[in-house]
Design a protein around this nucleic acid. Structure first.
Lengths: 202, 202
DNA sequence: GCAGTATAGGACACTCCTGTCTCATTTTGC
DNA sequence: GCAAAATGAGACAGGAGTGTCCTATACTGC
């Protein structure tokens, strides 16, 4: 689990983290949740919350940064420059599943802020998919933007599948297999790094 | 376009429909939008809105019913009992794309209301997929619930793809092709009803 | 054209959320 | 154990949304 993020075990940062975690977990469902409920969720008095984040916008900005860091950390861990591009995409997706609330936040932020078409596209991921076109592990007939959309959609599916009562492990396996199906070129066989002895839906 | 739904051209029902359309289009983005903004969006005074729906909950209930009807109408039009099950799933998905706001609403409602696992599963769709397992057009290795999740996810992807500036036609095509990739059994070739001369990503 | 109906616009009290205070209590670091 | 720091609990005014009401205006069917 990636939980002790910036956990400099001092009280201040523990409280701050508790508030941010509560905020992100609550705001992904309803962005207009009252600060009172955020504080309650964090196990903290509303006055304390205001001490850390004087105005609502301060909290929102902090959550923005917090989520961005969280997602970037996962992206780094996915080593998207290593191995076949298609497998890197799968690793990235499974990683995203771990910090879905932050990913969701980032995604919504990008949508809300960016009025330009496809501003939500991430440069690093766009390049990763380009690499996949070249190394032959991603079907070049599928537009880059569409692959990004469907990757996020699969992660969301998996997260929702977990929420519906299924195991995280099963959801991750299904998510992996589905993404491979979506992006693998028609003629391509199972990528080398994957143990092909396992049935995709084991 | 499916627009003149219950359009009994009388003024009352036209106003009512305008309010409901405005409500659903606004609430899918932010469930807590003020009634003033809903009224403004509908081109109607707030007092008029209150005349039709005295309390906020009345409007919410009406939207719930309105969305449900809209989705059911699309489902009927998709003729899910005809032809290969996989193609029926594709037809259903493309239909859902037409009334995405209503589908989204239904989905969120089911999630919010249902605390039981998988309550969001729809009986008719569950049976459709079961039929697909039997007629060999849907991979029986993929769990029924997962197929439903991914189908919704693909429709969402397509809708978001459109919102990002791409054409509705392209989004629908990509959605179709992706769903086929996801659910078709490994050994299965292009289903009979589809013109196999077209490249899936034309 | 006329009576009946529907609407726009605004006033009003009420509730909830917000941001700012203050003060007592608890926890930390030494 | 003690001083400093952090927290909890509550008061308070201002703002926004809600629900109810009323009146003048625009529209409908006959």
């Amino acid at each position: 689990m990636i939980d002790d993020l910036t956990a400099t075990s001092t009280l201040r940062s523990r409280t701050r983290n508790a508030i941010l975690e509560a905020a992100i977990s609550v705001f992904v469902n309803d962005r207009s949740t009252s600060l009172g409920k955020v504080a309650e969720r964090a196990g903290v008095a509303r006055s304390t919350l205001h001490r850390y984040f004087p105005e609502r916008s301060d909290l929102l900005n902090a959550v923005r940064e917090y989520a961005r860091d969280k997602v970037e950390r996962i992206r780094d861990a996915a080593r998207i420059h290593e191995g076949p591009a298609s497998e890197a995409v799968v690793r990235l997706a499974v990683g995203y599943l771990e910090v879905w609330d932050a990913v969701m936040w980032d995604y919504m932020e990008a949508e809300a802020a960016g009025e330009n078409p496809d501003e939500s596209e991430d440069v690093a991921i766009t390049q990763l998919i380009e690499r996949g076109y070249k190394d032959g592990t991603i079907d070049p007939a599928i537009p880059n933007a569409w692959i990004q959309h469907t990757m996020y959609a699969m992660v969301y599916s998996a997260w929702d599948y977990i929420r519906a009562g299924h195991s995280r492990h099963e959801a991750a396996k299904l998510c992996e297999a589905s993404i491979r199906k979506l992006i693998t070129p028609p003629s391509h066989v199972t990528p080398p790094t994957t143990r092909s002895s396992d049935h995709p839906f084991g």
